[in-house]
Structure formats: structure tokens, C-alpha cells
């Protein structure tokens, strides 16, 4: 995407917000236990949506519904509808593999493959047939690492193991790995909880930059982080979506007492 096209897309999305993903009456059950109750939540294109709420309220559960990672849990059952570009991702015709290429995920704990940095990046594009020649691979490695703000730090050791990097670098490597398959949406589950403040600041800066090209949903326990990086915030409590709105409003003038209390640290 060229610079002006990006700006156009961005300004267009500001005038008339595009809904990238929409959850309608999403309920999730782990066996007999219900973890989410009829959640209705929209995710807007080219913006960062933060999911906040006390521990165990179902933030990760909702996030994992968005790329069907919950499919890997045998006892997990999802009802309701989630759309990506108006297409139900739980429809039988949907190929989960393709969905996960479009909706990437970054996990709480950095989890690079115990392979070289280079291999970490090219694996995704290769299995999706997006690259085949050496030159294409070199290019995608450089481009992804560049976007993740990691290239200058690791350019001399691309063929050394990704697990040898520092925690913050590993997490940015995981982000680069997610970016490499050119997803449309990136899901992040507490991506900074295992990082120190400096590494956290770097990742937050990165998230802000990525918003231009991607749609991001981030789970976080840090109110400051939600306030810093997100445009919209959704507050969960005991499996219910309590409130959703522009981040600024959520943090200054929330509609519900529950949100007010949680944000000011009175519980949670």
C-alpha cells in the first residue's frame, strides 16, 4: 500500500468507521460452564480495540473466538455469530487455516519457534505459498522485521536461534512472524505482560504504528496501556460485556459504575 492510499483509507475509516469483525450474541461454553454470555462487540478497521476486565472475565476467551483458536480445546463450544468482512467465520465453508492467516495472533508469553530468526519469519508465508524463491524470502524477512522494529537489532544474526533473543525482542519477533503472513487483523493477548517497561514501551509504539495497516485487538491488564494504545475499549465482567466505547470516553466518563470502579482500581 502506498503512503497516500494508506492515508486515504485511514481518513475514510475515520469518517465512516468500517466494521472489520462483528460478534453477535457470542456465548462460549467450556463443557457445562459458560464463560461468555451473549457478547455483542464490533471491531473497527485500522484501529486498536482494547479488551479489559478483571481476571477470568473471558477476555482471552473472546479473543480466541476471533480466529477460532478455541477449536483446539475439545470441550469448548461457541454459539452466536462472528463475522470477518461480513462473512461468518463459524460457517462450515470457512477454512480455519485460511482464517488464521487473515487473523493472526500474538500470545502472552513470547513463543518463537526454536529455530533461526529467519526460519521463524518465513515459515508462515511458506506454508501459505506466499513466497517460494530465496529472494522473496529474504525480502519478507527484512520487511517483517523492519515493520516490527527489530531489523536493526538482529540483522547480523538472522540465522541464529530466535529463542536466544531477549524477552522483548522475542515478542517483537512473534509480532514480525504474525505480520509476515500479511494478516488483516492481529490479536494480542497481554503481549507485554512478560516484558519490562522499556520493552513494553517499544511494543506499544509498534502497536500504534501497525494500526495504520492492520486491525488490532489487544487484551491488557494495564489501564495505562489500554489508554495509551487503543482507540476503543471494551470492558468485560464475569463473562458479560459491560460497556464498550471510545477509549477516551471510557477512561474519563464511563457509563457504568462498574467500569468506573475498575478503571480507577477500586476492584479487579
Amino acid at each position: 500500500m502506498s503512503e497516500s492510499a494508506t492515508e486515504k483509507a485511514l481518513s475514510a475509516s475515520m469518517e465512516r468507521p468500517e466494521i472489520k469483525m462483528r460478534g453477535t450474541n457470542v456465548s462460549v461454553f467450556y463443557g457445562a460452564k459458560q464463560a461468555l454470555y451473549d457478547v455483542n462487540l464490533d471491531v473497527r478497521e485500522n484501529s486498536v480495540t482494547a479488551l479489559i476486565g478483571p481476571s477470568g472475565c473471558g477476555k482471552s476467551t473472546f479473543l480466541r473466538c476471533l480466529n477460532r483458536m478455541n477449536d483446539t480445546i475439545d470441550i469448548c463450544r461457541v454459539t452466536g455469530e462472528i463475522t470477518l468482512d461480513d462473512e461468518n467465520i463459524y460457517a462450515p465453508a470457512i477454512d480455519v487455516v485460511e482464517l488464521r492467516a487473515r487473523v493472526g495472533m500474538v500470545f502472552q508469553k513470547p513463543n518463537p519457534f526454536p529455530k533461526s530468526i529467519y526460519e521463524n519469519i518465513v515459515y508462515g508465508p511458506r506454508i501459505h505459498g506466499q513466497v517460494s524463491t530465496r529472494a522473496e524470502m529474504d525480502e519478507i524477512v527484512e520487511r517483517s522485521l523492519m515493520k516490527a522494529g527489530l531489523f536493526n537489532e538482529v540483522k547480523d544474526r538472522l540465522h541464529e536461534p530466535g529463542t536466544g533473543l531477549s524477552g522483548g525482542q522475542q515478542q517483537r519477533l512473534c509480532i514480525a512472524r504474525a505480520i509476515a503472513v500479511s494478516p488483516e487483523v492481529i490479536l494480542m493477548d497481554e503481549p507485554c505482560s512478560a516484558l519490562d517497561p522499556i520493552a513494553t514501551a517499544k511494543v506499544e509504539e509498534l502497536i500504534d504504528e501497525l494500526r495504520v495497516n492492520y486491525t488490532i485487538v489487544i487484551v491488557t491488564h494495564s489501564m495505562q496501556q489500554a489508554a495509551r494504545v487503543s482507540q476503543r475499549t471494551a470492558m468485560f465482567h464475569l463473562g458479560n460485556l459491560v460497556e464498550e466505547g471510545p477509549t477516551e470516553k471510557m477512561f474519563t466518563n464511563p457509563d457504568t459504575k462498574l467500569t468506573q470502579d475498575y478503571i480507577t482500581g477500586r476492584f479487579g
Binding site: 487455516v97 485460511e98 493472526g104 495472533m105 500470545f107 513463543n111 519457534f113 526454536p114 515459515y123 512473534c174
Partner: peptide, 20 residues
């Protein structure tokens, strides 16, 4: 977490098992 990582970038279950 390795399995998650592979599935998270769109590897199939078979690919996650045999590649990682």
C-alpha cells in the same frame, strides 16, 4: 505454546505436528 504459535499463523494441525 509451540502448537499455538504454529496454529496462530495458520498452520494446519498436521503441519503443526510434522513441522514443529
Amino acid at each position: 505454546s509451540i502448537n499455538d504459535a504454529a496454529l496462530g499463523i495458520g498452520a494446519s494441525k498436521m503441519q503443526a505436528i510434522f513441522h514443529h
